[in-house]
Structure formats: C-alpha cells, structure tokens
Amino acid sequence: MAVATGKSFASRFGVHIAVFIFVAIWTVPTLGILVSSLRDKDQIIASGWWNSFASSTQTEAGRLPPASAQVEKDGKFVLEGNIFGDDPARDISAFGVKSSAPTQYPAGTTADLGDGETLQLNADGSFVMTSTKPFEGERGQRVYYASSAPPKFTTDNYSTVLFSEGIGRSFMNSLTVTIPATVIPILIAAFAAYALAWMRFPGRALLIAVIIGLLVVPLQMSLIPLLKLYNGVGSFFGVPSKTYLGIWLAHTGFGLPFAIYLLRSYIAGLPREIMESARIDGASDFEIFVKIVLPLSFPVLASFAIFQFLWVWNDLLVAMVFLGTEGDQIVLTAKLNALLGSRGGDWEILTTSAFITIVVPLIVFFSLQRYFVRGLLAGSVKGG
C-alpha cells in the first residue's frame, strides 16, 4: 500500500510540475506583450521587457543652440544651456560629436573639438561650448550622448492603435466573422452528432468514416476548390463573392468534421437508460435532443466553442481569400499584418495590437475553461 501511495504522490507531483511548466511557457510571452504595450517606444528599443522596471540606457542625438544664441565672455564666444530642454532630466554617462563614436568622452569632461572649440557636457544635460572665434551657421552642433532614463509607462499606445490605426473597425469586423462562424457549426454539428450517435439509418457507418477522413484534409488543399464552388453558386444566384456569408460558410465547412466527431463521441457516451426512459414516456427524437441531450452536452459544446472561436479569431488566410482586405471588411489579423509590413520598427504599435487581439480569446477561454477538460474527456468513457 505504501508503494502504491508513493507512486500516486509522485504521479500527482509530476502532473503539477508539467502543468506549471506549460502555464509558464504560455504566460511569460503574454506578460511580455502586455508590459511592452505599456512602455515608451524609446525604452522598448533600448531594453527588453524584463528590464522595464529598471532604468534604461540608450544612445540619443541632439543639437546645441544656433550661433545666434552665443555670448562673449572673457574674450571667448560661449554657448550654454541644457541639451534636454523642457524634457525630463536624464543622467548622461558619455557623449561625442561623431556618430561613429557617440560615447567618446565621459560626461563632465571638456572635449577639444579642434580650431579652438571645446565642449563640456555634464551628467545632468547642462553644457558649455566655447570658441576663440564667433560661431557661425543657423544649425547648432550635433551631439550624441548615452543617457539613462527611469521607467516610463503610458497608455498612448492603446489610444494610437484603437483610434488612429483603424484597429477598432477591424476588431468589430473580426467579431462579426467569429461569432456566427462559431455558433453556426455548433448548431449543425449538434443535430448531426445526435443522429450519428443514437439514430439508425442506412449509410450511417459510411458517414462516420467520411467525417473521420475529413479531419485529416488540410485546409490549404480544399481552400481554392471551395472558393471556386462558392463563387460559381454565388454568381448563379447573384450573390457577391466578398461577403460575410461566404466566410461564415467557409469556417463552418472547415470546422464541421471536428465538431461532429467531438460531439458524437460525447453524446454516444451518455447513459442509454435516459434515452430509453424518454422514449417510453413518448418523447420524440427532437424532444430528447432538446430537453435531454443538449443540457447534458454543454461541456463538450463549450469545449468546441473555445476551439472554433480561437481558430476563427486568429485566422488570416481564409479571411483574406473569402472577405478581402477592404477597409470596411478587413479583419484584425489582416490589419495587423498590414501594420507589420508598413511599420516594422514601431514595436509599441505592434505589441499593443497583438495584446488587443488576445484579450477576447482570453475572456472566452477563462469564461468556459471549467467545461473544457470535462468536455474533451467525458466522451472517452462510456456510462456504466
């Protein structure tokens, strides 16, 4: 008994460790996206998100005042001020006047620039530039410096994404695609799963075999034939090709095999006694399905709803083929893809957009997660 108990404890401990590892693998990148989406864009470039709560060091460039700001002191011409201007003060560790050597001189030292010119840039940003001859030119000397800034968080990134980049409209377009494309296959698959599990009719075994075979058909292989079929039927009835109806039907077709297979496995495991008692009481198949099977099948319905919602929400290929990329129809993933192509360096925009895309799936998952495992596993064991 002791040995059995030890094995049981070891197995439970191993399961907990495995679950913790998978949760960490999934959570850490999500946390990184969230933190990066709230950081200042300059600090995102300077350091990783794990350093977001520490001061960041980065190399910047600025210009000293033009020649019109010079004053004459003790026979020399002097330019004075603070390189940060009205910006928050930062600590400068080194500076230079060439892009190839931006940290050539330590802060506080006096650099000899030649031709009688010197420059002293202090850690607080104050500077003194002197020359034995009058300064000339309308643009001041360009100066490079390495500075450290305290952590800075902002919600401006979200304002830019939601109100300036058209993401808000794409967000609503994705909801318009995803919700019907999740509900429609559930409605169809539930009826089909009940018929395949509890009704006897010719060709039933063949239909089950075909459904199982369709599970292994790649989406990319069937995408073009399905599009041609839809365009042909649509042109016959005068239906435009790029509509929400087309993408709803496409996602329904791609999701039905798995939905029917999953729901049938669960419904077939429901106790036979319940069905027989209902038939003795005079209930029809439709009444049994609506009043008994559907309430008992809610866990598996929720499980498939999570799968289907995530697949459709994160889809890019089907959306671009069946819906297009027009501004009034483009979905969120396509919009982010466009942002990535035109603004590859704006990490604050991309991380914010990426986090916005996962907010809705997270809400859906955590709302239904208590049914998730139960719905997937309940159909694997028949009722006794």
Rank of each mutant, 00 (worst) to 15 (best):
W26H: 13
D91L: 13
V321S: 08
R370S: 14
L263T: 00
A24I: 09
S37D: 08
F286D: 09
G6W: 11
Y144W: 14
R12L: 13
S36G: 12
S277N: 13
L215E: 04
G137Q: 05
Q369G: 08
H251T: 04
A268M: 14
I356Q: 00
T130I: 10
D281R: 07
S159R: 15
F191C: 11
F127E: 05
L339R: 01
V293Q: 01
V217R: 02
Q43E: 11
T178R: 02
T5W: 14
M221W: 09
S93F: 08
L350Q: 05
G108D: 02
F366C: 03
N157I: 08
V360L: 13
G85L: 12
Q141E: 12
R90E: 12
A4Y: 13
Y158W: 12
L339N: 01
A94P: 07
L187S: 06
T160M: 14
P271R: 03
R12M: 13
F322G: 04
G375D: 07
W26N: 15
Q308A: 12
A46K: 02
F289C: 02
L226F: 12
L377G: 14
A189L: 09
V312P: 04
R264W: 02
D285P: 14
E165Y: 11
G324F: 06
V23I: 15
S297Q: 00
L79M: 11
V217S: 02
F171Q: 04
A111P: 08
F365A: 05
P180Y: 01
V183A: 10
H251A: 11
T333W: 01
Y266K: 07
L336P: 01
E165H: 13
I83F: 05
Q308M: 10
A250I: 03
V177L: 11
S93T: 14
S159N: 14
A67K: 05
T252R: 01
Q141H: 09
Q329F: 07
G345L: 13
F286M: 14
R12F: 04
Q104R: 14
V318T: 11
L245N: 02
P257V: 05
L368K: 00
P225L: 05
F355L: 12
I179E: 02
L162K: 03
L301M: 12
S68F: 10
L226H: 01
G282P: 12
I21A: 13
T154C: 09
T182H: 06
G324A: 07
M199G: 03
F304R: 09
A205M: 13
P151C: 03
F366Q: 04
E287M: 14
W248Q: 05
T154A: 07
V360D: 00
G6L: 15
E117Q: 15
Y145G: 02
S99I: 11
A278P: 07
M129K: 11
S303C: 12
I33C: 10
T252C: 11
T5I: 15
S68V: 06
S52C: 10
L119A: 03
T182V: 11
P66S: 07
A250P: 08
I211G: 00
L263P: 04
A319T: 09
